[in-house]
Amino acid sequence: MISVKTTQLTKKFGSFTAVDAVDLEVYKGEIFGFLGANGAGKSTMIRMLCGLLMPSSGEALIDGLDIYKESELIKKRIGYMSQKFSLYNDLTVAENIEFYGGVYSLDKKLIRSKKEEIAVSLNLKEEMKRLTRDVPVGLKQRLALACAMLHDPKIIFLDEPTSGVDPKVRKDFWNIIYDLSEHGKTVFVTTHFMEEAEYCHRLSIMQDGRIIALDSPENMKAIHNEKTIQDVFIKLIKRQNNDEI
């Protein structure tokens, strides 16, 4: 089942084309990775799919909904977490959860049960009453994800969710991503960590607004005859750069 589909999706900022006629089909329950250099168009792509940016041209369907006409409905079905974690550091952990619950107009009972659920799964007790700025970064990361998932979205966009955390915390975080996928959620991820790229079901490598490679990590490595995605990535990007020169 197709979860996200784009046809010739394009975004221009003035004369600069950030995303250039991208065709994409991502399936329900898939973990789909966006790789690329800074400024290659990953973030722009994700921001369009989330409704943060209007495309310049092209089509996109999110869970069957049109990105132009049904953006309000789309917002209820997607979750978004950025590398900034988007939590209010001067609010307590509980207040953050309550706030995001309120923004999605969940009723009080549901917010309360979600709060308990999060407290159990993140193993939080007294931390609930602590200011968010005082909790460790790994916990903050999982809390940010929990807040982005309060309204039980079908599709989740994770924009560099693991930047700035250590290898153990990153690996734990990927366990959560696998779990989401198992529960039928479609997960979009961008990352600069190439070992994480290997964890994705399918990967796309972007450069200059275009997808220059799209496949499963295993196939990608086999096709380019490299041991790691890191090597594939460097090979592809460097080749592209050389072509341009």
């Binding site: 250099a37 800074n38 560099e160 700035g164 190439m194 990535f233 990007i237 460097k238």
Partner: peptide, 8 residues
């Protein structure tokens, strides 16, 4: 921090 593999 936050830099792509080629630049790294």
């Amino acid at each position: 921090f936050g830099v792509d593999p080629v630049s790294r």
